[in-house]
């Protein structure tokens, strides 16, 4: 099992960083409900439009939000598949630990007096 792939680890760090900020996480959650423009998004938050744009840029950088342009307007939606590497972590460890506990049992059998 390939638990610790470097490229994936870097990607995961990006995702975690992007979602570490509570406002950014809330933006992502809003966009998981439906596609929105920046001004629609802004209505739900007590932060400035440039701040919202900055959060969107960070989320897009981490592959968590996609942009759709329509003339002068831009719309944003969440890309839940961007979270897959994180889901992966817990799934990998769910497979990892039982296998290691089985090995631990073998070791104990060996060293038992």
């Amino acid at each position: 099992m390939d638990l610790f792939d470097f490229d994936e680890a870097i990607l995961e760090a990006d995702i975690l960083r992007a979602l570490a900020d509570p406002t950014r996480r809330a933006v992502f959650e809003q966009l998981a409900r439906r596609e929105m423009s920046v001004s629609e998004l802004k209505a739900g938050f007590s932060v400035s439009q440039p701040a919202i744009s900055q959060h969107l840029a960070a989320l897009r950088g981490a592959g968590l939000v996609a942009e759709r342009r329509e003339g002068r307007f831009a719309y944003y939606r969440a890309e839940p598949q961007g979270l897959a590497p994180l889901i992966d972590w817990i799934d990998r460890y769910r497979a990892f630990w039982p296998e290691r506990i089985d090995r631990l049992k073998d070791v104990l059998k060996d060293i038992k007096p």
Partner: peptide, 27 residues
């Protein structure tokens, strides 16, 4: 292990199905 989508998953049909699809594809 981070629960990043908690708010989006809670009672949000679209979020849930998409995440389940991702999970199935990944594992």
């Amino acid at each position: 292990f981070p629960v990043v989508l908690q708010g989006a998953i809670r009672g949000q049909g679209a979020g849930v199905s998409t995440m389940s699809a991702v999970r199935r594809r990944q594992a």
